[in-house]
Design a protein around this nucleic acid. Sequence first.
DNA 1: AAGTGGTCTAGACCACGCG
DNA 2: GCGTGGTCTAGACCACTTG
Lengths: 253, 253
Amino acid sequence: MQSPTDGKQMNTPQTPLRPVSMPLHRQLRDLLMARIKAGEWSPGTYLPPETRLAEDYGVAVGTLRKALLDMAAEGVVVRRQGKGTVVASHDSDAVLFRFFNLRRPDGSTLHPESRVLSRMRRAASSPEAAALGLKPGADVVCITRVREVDGTPIIFEHIVLDAARFGALERTPELLPNTLYQLYQTDYGATVHRAREQITAASATGTCATELALHDNAPLLHVHRVALDYSGTPLELRLSWVNTASLYYHTEV
Amino acid sequence: MQSPTDGKQMNTPQTPLRPVSMPLHRQLRDLLMARIKAGEWSPGTYLPPETRLAEDYGVAVGTLRKALLDMAAEGVVVRRQGKGTVVASHDSDAVLFRFFNLRRPDGSTLHPESRVLSRMRRAASSPEAAALGLKPGADVVCITRVREVDGTPIIFEHIVLDAARFGALERTPELLPNTLYQLYQTDYGATVHRAREQITAASATGTCATELALHDNAPLLHVHRVALDYSGTPLELRLSWVNTASLYYHTEV
DNA sequence: AAGTGGTCTAGACCACGCG
DNA sequence: GCGTGGTCTAGACCACTTG
């Protein structure tokens, strides 16, 4: 790891901290993660084989292996016997809809279409700034859209992004894709890794009721979602109002 | 594993199936799980040390270790350096409320009290039987209760259990505890390992509206939960109606 | 056939909990 | 001090993928 003369467990010898040193496999994990985050290996790229990496870092294969297995458990990489270890690319339908938890009564999954109503740039409200970790009043890009299945509108959606990072989204691309998370990855190098959701009961009102073709006060599910990247940095705030008349929100604990 | 003369990778030699044989560590995991499920090691019990177990099964420590680590990742056991490997006992507050996803607006957790409204035994409805994996019309025990925080009712709850297994719950104990899952474990040897939830928007009506002190058609969150044990057997069906006026349902993806 | 990750073994030392 | 699980090493063979 440091020099060839280091014995086992002798990482960072001159560091009398608490803990004296993180386990080697943890350090390796962090180093590899850093190289991925730096873009040295982008999503879809194969990492060098275990033996090569272990040699490079001067550690046993088993140790490096533990680091890679941990990363695979986190979903950062995917390991395939006979092929190699590839940086996870979140662009297959299955993965893109990992964050989409709505299902039909029979349990089948939905793949709705999207229709954008508006895009604009404005100052963040105070709760928006808080959710995204921005300074109060910072600029945000705001997208409003309706998502429909078989022509029936089921979700009214309000998306808020940091304009400093995603400002271009106000205009380009002309047509926003249905799967925004893929766009964040390809065009902005921002990979959504996990999301926190707060669900409450709500009633349809105003534009939301109109767009969902519901009478006022129809019961809706309100979902407040903050999407985060690997390191826990908030990327997107998404407020959804869902008509659950013919579907349900699914979760496992 | 089988006989001392077996070479490496030579498990179940006469089995030309596909796959020929599961990995050793997988077989070990299954054997250990079976012994736990059989009650040989009950929740809270320490398993024999790695070295001892490896010796017993005639495998390398590393292999047995992999089995235990997998089980720990699943939450079946907890491993503690210097102490040993203990069968997970789901009786601490933190774990008991692992399935309780409601929080206050500030993010703090709730610990509601329960008030039982009724207990009865009756034939299962068809969707109830389906959810619990019972034959249509099988007997079930049905508990209705209200859960409140600081004296304010927030959840109206309907619990359905297989009478063949939980029949005694109709009468004993006289006072049902707040944390039913703990009771299932201690009195019925049934450990809730995970749960599947279906969430929809609903409106308050009838007894539910009355008990929650809400006007008719007030918006509610409806949660349909099936609680499962280690092997995926349904243990409990729970229908909850939640007043989310001063709290939200939290989930991470 | 060559190269990859997956499994299994064997043995060393370290960090932790407890008496 | 002793026994526990945690880390690390080294090397073997197996199963899968590709050319």
